[in-house]
């Protein structure tokens, strides 16, 4: 085989064998490096890339979740505060109403008691006046009797007593 080859010194032909050696050894090198070096290395790099991606995604999700929770909590707090104030308002109104009712009741009862007491007093007063009047009448009668008895004799007196007893017995 005759080829024009640069760097060759004349009578030697083409070193086809060198080409074969190169091809075989290069392909073997490629295979060995791919298997022992590039694949593990690439796997590690890809793993790292995936890890970073997933971490970023995770962080993003967490951020969104945190924001959502914060909003939720704020709303909850706002609502709770509104609830509390309305409950307080209700309670205050209720208390006011009860207070008024109680005061009103007490006033009514007090007024009633006062009225009763006044009526009682009035009645007692009238009773006492009537009693006094009676007693005054009796006393007057007694006094009148005393004054009359001096002029009445014993017989008349006895007759009068009998008459009274009879009247009392009739009653």
């Amino acid at each position: 085989m005759e080829f024009l080859i640069l760097g060759n010194t004349g009578d030697v032909g083409v070193a086809i064998g060198s080409s074969l050696v190169l091809l075989v050894s290069f392909l073997v090198l490629l295979g060995a490096l791919s298997y022992f070096v590039w694949k593990p290395l690439k796997k590690v790099m890809d793993d790292r890339e995936n890890l970073i991606h997933s971490e970023i995604d995770d962080a993003e999700n967490r951020r969104i979740e945190a924001q959502r929770l914060q909003k939720e909590n704020e709303e909850l707090v706002k609502q709770t505060q509104a609830d509390i104030s309305s409950i307080m308002e209700d309670a205050r109104a209720q208390a006011n109403k009860e207070q008024e009712t109680i005061i009103h009741d007490a006033n009514t009862r007090a007024n009633q008691l006062m009225a009763n007491a006044k009526a009682d007093v009035e009645r007692e007063k009238e009773k006492a006046i009537a009693e006094i009047n009676d007693q005054v009448a009796e006393l007057s009668i007694l006094i009148a009797e005393k004054m009359i008895s001096k002029e009445m004799d014993h017989q008349d007196q006895q007759q009068l007593v009998k008459q009274y007893l009879q009247e009392a017995g009739d009653k």
């Binding site: 030697v12 032909g13 083409v14 070193a15 086809i16 064998g17 060198s18 074969l20 050696v21 190169l22 050894s25 290069f26 073997v28 090198l29 060995a32 490096l33 022992f36 070096v37």
Partner: peptide, 19 residues
């Protein structure tokens, strides 16, 4: 089929070093 022995040797040495 002619082998250039020194070139072949150096190719193999290169491959071994790289690997």
């Amino acid at each position: 089929v002619m082998f250039d022995l020194s070139t072949s040797l150096m190719i193999i040495i290169t491959c071994l070093i790289v690997f």
